[in-house]
Simulated scan of single mutants.
Amino acid sequence: MSDEWKEPVVDKSEQKSWKLLERAVLAGVQEQRRARRWGIFFKLLTFLYLFIALLLLSPALDLQKTAARGEVHTALVEVRGMIADEEAASADNIVTALRAAFEDSKTKGVVLRINSPGGSPVQSGYIYDEIRRLRDEHKDIKVYAVIADLGASGAYYIASAADEIYADKASLVGSIGVTAASFGFVDAMGKLGVERRVYTSGEHKAFLDPFQPQKPEETEFWRGVLKTTHQQFIESVKKGRGDRLKVGEHPELFSGLVWSGEQALELGLVDKLGSASFVAREVIGAKDIVDYTVQESPFDRFSKKFGTAVAERLALWMGFQGPSLR
Rank of each mutant, 00 (worst) to 15 (best):
S2A: 15
A24E: 14
A27R: 10
Q30C: 11
R33M: 07
A35Y: 00
R36Q: 12
G39W: 08
I40R: 12
F42S: 11
T46A: 15
F47G: 02
Y49S: 12
L50W: 04
L50H: 03
L50C: 03
A53P: 01
L54Y: 10
S58G: 01
L61T: 15
D62P: 07
K65W: 02
G70A: 08
A75S: 14
V77W: 03
A88R: 11
S90G: 03
I94Q: 04
T96V: 05
S105T: 14
V111W: 04
R113P: 00
V122N: 09
Q123N: 07
G125D: 05
I127M: 06
D129V: 04
I131K: 02
R133T: 07
D140S: 13
Y144M: 08
A152I: 03
Y156F: 11
S160C: 08
E164M: 14
V173K: 01
V178Q: 12
S182N: 14
V186N: 09
G193S: 08
V194R: 09
E195G: 06
T200V: 12
T200I: 04
A206Q: 10
A206F: 10
T219Y: 10
E220S: 14
F221W: 14
F221C: 05
V225E: 13
K227M: 07
D243P: 11
P251H: 01
E252Q: 15
F254Q: 07
S255N: 10
S260L: 08
L269V: 09
V270K: 03
V270E: 04
D271L: 05
D271P: 06
D271F: 03
L273R: 07
L273T: 11
S275V: 05
A276Y: 01
A276R: 13
S277F: 00
F278W: 13
V279R: 05
E282N: 15
I284D: 02
I284Q: 02
G285D: 11
A286R: 08
D288C: 02
I289D: 03
V290S: 03
T293L: 06
F299G: 06
A309P: 01
A311Y: 06
A311E: 10
A311Q: 09
G319S: 07
L325D: 07
